[in-house]
Write a protein that binds this DNA or RNA. Structure first.
Lengths: 338, 338
DNA sequence: GTAAAAGATGTTATCGGTTACATTTACACA
DNA sequence: TGTGTAAATGTAACCGATAACATCTTTTAC
């Protein structure tokens, strides 16, 4: 690999002139410019960007902390981040953190050690580990998808509470009175917000909240399946199951069908996320659409603004959601209205 | 951010001693070691890894060229790559290439410009653009998942032809004679290999190959749906549809159900990949399991071996597949055996 | 007690660019 | 022709670490 010095020698100029030829061509006379360019072409010279980054102190790299890259929703967010980053000349360093605090802390070190300029965190800070990032205030970071109130970073999210309320209202309007909810992990703010929206709707409709209808899952297909197993074995089973994401809803649907029940005649099922598979499920799944790619794009753009000092720290972007009504939800069965 | 020089000053030693304290602590006397460590702690010193990488000429970064990160199968491969890379002290730079030659070429430049050490390509080289990478021989690269014969790089793949043959034989053994295939994009070697396996099995069973039963798709749910639409409108429709991936199979299943047919009583459906959703489909999908995470891990490990000069260029790793028989395939309907 | 060996630490060049400042060249105008 | 100014180019410091080599200190052994 040739260096700027070799180019300079071959062109018979100084390294500064070569550098200028590349950075500010108008500050170099046309004839030397040509001579330098010939030398560059001849040697196949490519500037060592590592050296450039080292000197400039800017890496042009953003780190994305993703709980699980093998998740359909996050995959879309990643796509959005990657494209936005690329279009602004940044690279995206992807980290699969599996929600592990230690791994996340480690990844954040990439910024401390000048290997990256900023961090995008797709998971909310664990409220039980408030000192997670000691240098919080210093670290250029944005939080996306799952955020916590009072975050000290810019955040990009949607109104999960309102969305969950909208879905629950949809189910209530279909006549459902025993509506189960399959939650995400206890520690997730997402879970808390969506649960709150569910409760908002029930209260507004004058319905009581039945704890036996609340099941904990972990956003995987299998946990949805397990939750449905529990719910179907209740003495008085629900007429609708609202799952906090589509994967769990699809897991639940499988169990419901295996139990010989039909959807939505016997039980309605609703999800959250509107992943591609939802429209192809049997029956197609009623869900909340989130603009996943936009989450990623926005997070990257906000982070770059932060890096350029253009964004104030408390910025909070709220993206819109949409209730997508498909065939997995329908009128409550009569037997459920005694 | 403090530098090694500040640490040296504070500890009253030279920069070399500080460097040694971190690199080869045994070459420093215990008492200075302590003094240096105190200075490091006190200043919160973190070595600037950009400087280290610049000087060493090693970036410890691997680039992954992924056609679409928003794909369930690739997401699993990415997970495998990410973990293997992390465990060997490498970072993974993820690039969503959308199969675009220009973008891929650009990404490969990351190596030329010393921003990355090597490349993992998850897509086969476009046979129509043989000069894709001019510096092919020089670029440390491995090709995974989708490879082409005679590749000049190490490759990690599975025997797609044998796998497709096994699936087709399974369908034949169930009595199917009119077996349709939903292919991937024309340009994909995967498509060619799986088609060849399909033809192998048909020939071995003395069945003729009917071109009207071959449909082109693009590995998306919707293309599977469209392909099924075409196949169902044939004067003499197939009794089984073998899709080259699970997404297309799930798209096809949706169409078949919408047409009022049952699976597998009227039509059997088979996929390829064994993504998580397949087991939860209605009915659960018969498919070929690929060790997706292992693809990623192996590709990373081979690439690191290449970087360390431990692997010869022609290495070819073939991973095992497994035929997973679920309920989407069953005996051919009688009417199909005239 | 002293030379040799081993151990500890310091000095400095280096990686490959960028850029402030210095110097040279070119040209215009009196 | 001389001088001032602008344009072109060169020189060298610098970013922050590493490591070869030099130097100084302490053991070890006779």
């Amino acid at each position: 690999m040739s260096t700027i010095r070799e180019v300079a020698d071959m062109a018979g100029v100084s390294v500064a002139t070569v550098s200028r030829t590349l950075q500010q061509p108008d500050r170099v006379s046309p004839k030397t410019r040509v001579r330098v360019q010939e030398a560059i072409d001849h040697l196949g010279y490519k500037p060592n960007l590592m050296a450039v980054k080292f000197r400039s102190g800017k890496t042009q790299v953003l780190v994305a902390l993703v709980p699980t890259v093998a998740n359909v929703f996050f995959a879309r967010v990643i796509k959005g981040m990657q494209e936005a980053a690329a279009s602004q000349g940044y690279s995206l360093l992807l980290m699969n953190t599996m929600g592990d605090d230690d791994i996340e802390r480690n990844c954040a070190k990439l910024v401390d050690t000048s290997q990256a300029d900023g961090v995008i965190q797709l998971r909310a800070f664990n409220p039980f580990a408030p000192d997670q990032f000691q240098s919080e205030a210093l670290l250029p970071m944005v939080n996306a998808c799952e955020i916590v109130d009072g975050a000290r970073f810019p955040t990009v999210t949607l109104d999960n509470r309102a969305a969950a309320k909208a879905m629950t209202e949809h189910l209530i309007s279909l006549g459902h009175r025993r509506i189960a909810m399959v939650k995400g992990p206890q520690s997730s703010p997402l879970t808390r917000d969506r649960l709150a929206g569910y409760e908002d709707a029930l209260k507004a409709a004058g319905l009581s909240i039945d704890d036996s209808l609340l099941c904990a899952g972990d956003f995987t297909l299998s946990s949805g399946y397990r939750a449905a197993t529990t719910l179907l074995s209740l003495p008085k089973r629900p007429t609708a199951i609202f799952c906090e994401n589509d994967e769990m809803a699809m897991g639940a649907m499988r169990k419901v069908r295996e139990a010989g029940l039909s959807i939505p005649e016997d039980i309605s099922i609703a999800g959250f996320d509107n992943i591609a598979f939802s429209a192809y499920a049997e029956p197609p799944l009623t869900t909340i659409a989130q603009p996943a790619e936009e989450f990623g794009e926005t997070a990257v753009n906000v982070l770059i603004d932060v890096l350029n000092g253009k964004t104030k720290h408390a910025l909070k972007v709220i993206l819109p959601f949409e209730l997508i009504t498909r065939q997995s939800t329908g009128p409550a069965p009569d037997s459920a209205n005694p």
